[in-house]
């Protein structure tokens, strides 16, 4: 079923991961959805919220809320598990007892993480004939896995790609060390955490490391680029776009 979809690309995509946003839009359009990017949205407020700065978090999130709460029931799709988790679960707390609470609740009901949205209709994806001969390791983002409880959905999506072999990672569910501001606050610890993950990825012998969270990918790809890991890194959206090309 094709439908009208609002795509919230997130701030990380606006600064460093524009490609992810473009690829997500491309895949959604390929499926026949009527995609409209959300204009006027900034950030979900998570960096400040998770640092204990609720006031600026609320001010920024309110701007995004105004842009997202557009009076429709259209699903709002995000190519980011972490931002989805913020909107879906933590806005309630952030706006508790405030005038924005009702709107935040409306938005929370509409937001969908991209791979979970795609997993609603795997047959439609399969019908497009995605094909890529690669061995893939999937990194579960912490917020997707333990807050949104999305474990199977991204795997279901990857399973639609012909020729793709999903190889389990021993460290697949362990944090990559990004942690938002953590990665800048404790760069040495954060890097050590990434290295432990990358060592596992390298040892597993995959062609591609895939995740659905731009934050994790920023961290892992950034470190892998610096250390020269032979494994390439893709967002689920980018992998699908390649598979559809």
């Amino acid at each position: 079923m094709t439908r009208r979809v609002r795509l919230f690309t997130t701030c990380l995509a606006d600064v460093v991961a524009r490609r992810t946003a473009d690829d997500a839009e491309h895949v959604l359009r390929a499926l026949g959805h009527d995609v409209e990017r959300v204009h006027g949205a900034t950030c979900c407020g998570q960096p400040a919220f998770n640092s204990g700065f609720d006031e600026p978090a609320r001010a920024v999130a309110a701007a995004t809320l105004r842009a997202l709460d557009d009076g429709t029931d259209d699903p709002i799709v995000l190519p980011s598990g972490s931002c989805t988790s913020m909107l879906r679960l933590h806005w309630r707390e952030l706006f508790h007892g405030r005038p924005e609470a009702e709107g935040a609740a409306r938005v929370a009901r509409r937001v969908r993480e991209l791979s979970a949205f795609l997993a609603d209709d795997p047959a439609a994806l399969r019908a497009l004939g995605p094909r890529l001969d690669v061995r893939v390791g999937y990194h579960d983002s912490c917020h997707m896995l333990r807050e949104l409880r999305l474990r199977e959905e991204p795997r279901t999506v990857l399973a639609q790609v012909e020729g793709l072999e999903l190889v389990p990672l021993a460290s697949g569910e362990r944090c990559c060390g990004f942690g938002g501001t953590f990665s800048g606050r404790y760069p040495e610890v954060s890097t050590a955490m990434a290295d432990s993950k990358i060592a596992d990825v390298d040892a597993t012998g995959v062609d591609l490391l895939v995740s659905a969270d731009p934050g994790c990918l920023l961290q892992l790809e950034g470190r892998m680029s610096r250390t020269g890991s032979p494994v390439r890194v893709r967002h689920v959206a980018s992998l699908l776009r390649e598979a559809l090309a």
Partner: peptide
């Protein structure tokens, strides 16, 4: 942040 990590903007 960038002491130990690159910022990958495009496709590596």
């Amino acid at each position: 942040w960038t002491a130990t990590r690159d910022l990958v903007l495009g496709r590596r």
